[in-house]
């Protein structure tokens, strides 16, 4: 009877030890930076164009684009053609818990999507949409749209040989 008790005790102690040493998925990933799966970002089929950090606002952004957008961005002609898709994802920065000396994405702030499409009236129309917050809800305010389109299109791609 006594030996069973000891075995049980040992098992409990061991399992507690094991639990405290195995990090959870939340600890292994960056949950507050995650895009909601309902947004289906991966369905857009975009590639990374560049990354930049706004020190004044303490944000970090990654610019994505479809292959056509990437191609025209590299060419640097500043001439948008129909069929380009850009997405700029912006996070608040946070310090990297694993590396003193680094800042990484923290809370998801917004995703801005720029698309160029031909319409009935015009051969080329550029649309802009901004999704905000952790849930990425659409903000219909159009105040700075033209500035934001210009800003996004003016980004120089990161050199990737």
């Amino acid at each position: 009877m006594k030996s069973i008790k000891y075995v049980l005790l040992a098992a409990i102690v061991l399992s507690m030890y094991a639990c405290s040493n195995t990090p959870t998925i939340a600890e292994l990933t960056n949950p507050k930076a995650a895009l909601p799966s309902s947004f289906n970002f991966d369905q857009l089929g975009l590639k990374a164009i560049t990354t930049f950090v706004n020190k004044k606002q303490g944000t970090t952004s990654t610019l994505y684009g479809n292959p056509l957008a990437l191609k025209t961005a590299i060419a640097g002609t500043n001439q948008i053609v129909a069929g380009e898709v850009f997405a700029l994802v912006t996070w608040k920065q946070q310090t990297d818990a694993h590396w003193f000396g680094a800042n990484i994405p923290g809370n998801l702030q917004q995703v801005e999507v720029v698309k160029s499409t031909p319409t009935i009236e015009k051969p080329l129309a550029v649309s802009y949409a901004r999704y905000e917050g952790k849930g990425l809800t659409l903000n219909s305010d159009t105040l700075n749209n033209q500035d934001r389109i210009k800003y996004i299109l003016s980004q120089k791609p990161a050199i990737m040989p």
Partner: peptide, 25 residues
Amino acid sequence: IPDYKNWQPLSTSERFDNNTMRIIF
């Protein structure tokens, strides 16, 4: 492996210890 640029970014990092910018694909 030259194909890295077609992969998806898993995270990015601003390294102020050595003044670099990083994408982890």
